[in-house]
């Protein structure tokens, strides 16, 4: 089994990722693309139907973690140390959210990641994220 299918199994084994309907669209050395369908359960503003920032955070966090694990210099698992999310605009109700995360540097102990989340209109991201993650599995 190649690394992408292992990763796909890994993502679907995460109960919360499954609960939010997340899917791993592509994975290559340090870059992960994931998406999450629109779901009325994730609404944060009932008046407009815009999904809650927390659901976008969950997708970005998972996608960043997948990017870290897919990096050639990352030997195994990872955990979030910190994650900053900037919200540029409300996601359009009814549209899926797609996240793209890039793990751009890995040291012995820390991996650095940045990510963007978009809906159908990819000219302006819904949110951007930057974070640091642990590097686990090194002995």
């Amino acid at each position: 089994m190649d690394k992408t299918s292992i990763a796909k199994h890994f993502i679907t084994a995460i109960p919360h990722a499954r609960e939010l309907g997340m899917s791993l669209d592509s994975l290559s050395e340090g870059i992960a693309v994931m998406s999450m369908p629109y779901d009325e359960r994730f609404i944060g503003d009932p008046e407009t139907g815009v999904i809650h920032g927390g659901a976008v955070s969950a997708l970005l966090d998972t996608c960043c973690g997948a990017a870290v694990m897919s990096h050639p210099r990352s030997p195994g698992g990872t955990a979030t140390i910190d994650l900053r999310i900037d919200y540029m605009r409300a996601a359009t109700p009814g549209q899926a959210i797609r996240a793209r995360a890039e793990c751009y540097h890995v040291t012995r102990n820390v991996a650095f990641v940045r990510a963007t989340a978009t809906d159908d209109d990819d000219s302006l991201p819904v949110a951007t994220a930057a974070g640091s993650f642990t590097v686990e599995g090194l002995k």
Binding site: A17, G53, G54, A55, S57, A58, L59, D61, I85
Partner: peptide
């Protein structure tokens, strides 16, 4: 607990 859940809980 999922890191995204923790983030969402704090944001809520």
């Amino acid at each position: 607990i999922h890191g995204g859940v923790t983030a969402a809980f704090l944001e809520i």
